[in-house]
Design a protein around this nucleic acid. Sequence first.
DNA 1: GCGCGGCCTCAAGAAAGCGTCAAGAACGGG
DNA 2: CCCGTTCTTGACGCTTTCTTGAGGCCGCGC
Lengths: 236, 236
Amino acid sequence: MTGEMPEKGPLVLLVEDEPQMRRFLRAILQSHGYRLVEAETAAEGIAHATAYNPDLVLLDLGLPDGDGLDVTRRMREWTATPIIVLSARGQESDKIQALDAGADDYLTKPFGGGELLARMRVALRHAARPGGDDAAPIVSFGDIRLDLVRRQVFRGDDEVHLTPNEYKLLTTLAKNAGKVITHRQLLKEVWGPNATNQTHYLRVYMAQLRHKLESDPARPKHFTTEPGVGYRLRTE
Amino acid sequence: MTGEMPEKGPLVLLVEDEPQMRRFLRAILQSHGYRLVEAETAAEGIAHATAYNPDLVLLDLGLPDGDGLDVTRRMREWTATPIIVLSARGQESDKIQALDAGADDYLTKPFGGGELLARMRVALRHAARPGGDDAAPIVSFGDIRLDLVRRQVFRGDDEVHLTPNEYKLLTTLAKNAGKVITHRQLLKEVWGPNATNQTHYLRVYMAQLRHKLESDPARPKHFTTEPGVGYRLRTE
DNA sequence: GCGCGGCCTCAAGAAAGCGTCAAGAACGGG
DNA sequence: CCCGTTCTTGACGCTTTCTTGAGGCCGCGC
């Protein structure tokens, strides 16, 4: 077996008032690895959209407290998150209105779970396209540049080769730059939860990182030791 | 009407064999300012797609000379142009297949002109978003040129023959040039999701690619190994 | 001054991962 | 049905990476 990551799937906001429908969708989504947030009203839908910033919205029209179209329009004022409308109304004019209001797809109830999932994949595919999500994939300190997307480390203009563990250790430090990270945390992150007392690993690997990335490995400027506690990466 | 402006509406490629349906769609599209290119067969569809580089494709499944899904898949090898499938078949499995093959939407005949136009607007809205079109249809590195449209690989002036798996492996690497792609990703992409632990395949096929495309296969400049992680294609 | 705990260094053996070669199986076209 | 191509599988040796241990340094409390 492989010690996989928790594999957190895309976050879906479900806005739907009928309990029965909600149960149906919840079952489908969760069994396919999606994380789920639910709302029962338009107002709650908008509130959750801003609070959770989901990857996708499933929106029922005909909510108790207002038009679902409003939800769509309101969301489109500030986000391009895919919205798939689910509706009992199959009139062409309804579809056109919803789509022009900013919805990305429109399914008429009843629909098959398979089709819904397929259309969700399409929507998520779109959202993944333009490099809109990854904000700052490059961390730098001193003359070191760490490119998290390409998985490359540069020292000046030269690429530095890191082994998998070295890289993982560096990234966990970099992701919490400035903060102290305890031995336990680092070990758990890099070597897994069964190695949280092998502090010797850290000494060896920190030494390697320092040799590869510090100009004076014996007097580290960036990879500093916090005796008895852990290590810290100083990025300025 | 004649005497109009230079008519610079979006260019739509219509791939449809039934003359009746073509007439119907032609009327709708032209009356709404779209420019139109028509194809009657799958082969012609692909040819026109490369020749005209349309803004949107309307694709009928069930063409005389082959599966419409193939057209979708082939196009997705090099372009992200929106594809809306029009089909008489309304089975859920058909929809799922088409959408997963790369289609952006699926309408079952008969459908209303208004809905089609609305869904086209959605598709064009997606395509219009920033970032624009990314995938250059030709990738090159060293003295290698990879033509994604023609599915051809050249080394200098000579064409290099690749087997299907070799080609697929090369393209998945090329589409993420510079980034490390994990063993798992590559295997899933080339051999399907049931082979994600057959890392041995990768060794064999990477060796073959290197032999065909590297000047010194034993010391690869472009197809580099990231031990324990995956492979990377360096394009500079 | 001495002992001790925590840390760093160096290095070697163990383990895992990788590249190579080759043979048999499966496939597809004639 | 046969032949050539492509895919799969296995064995082997090599390289990289991981793990482990021994030794030394330093600061602190006693």
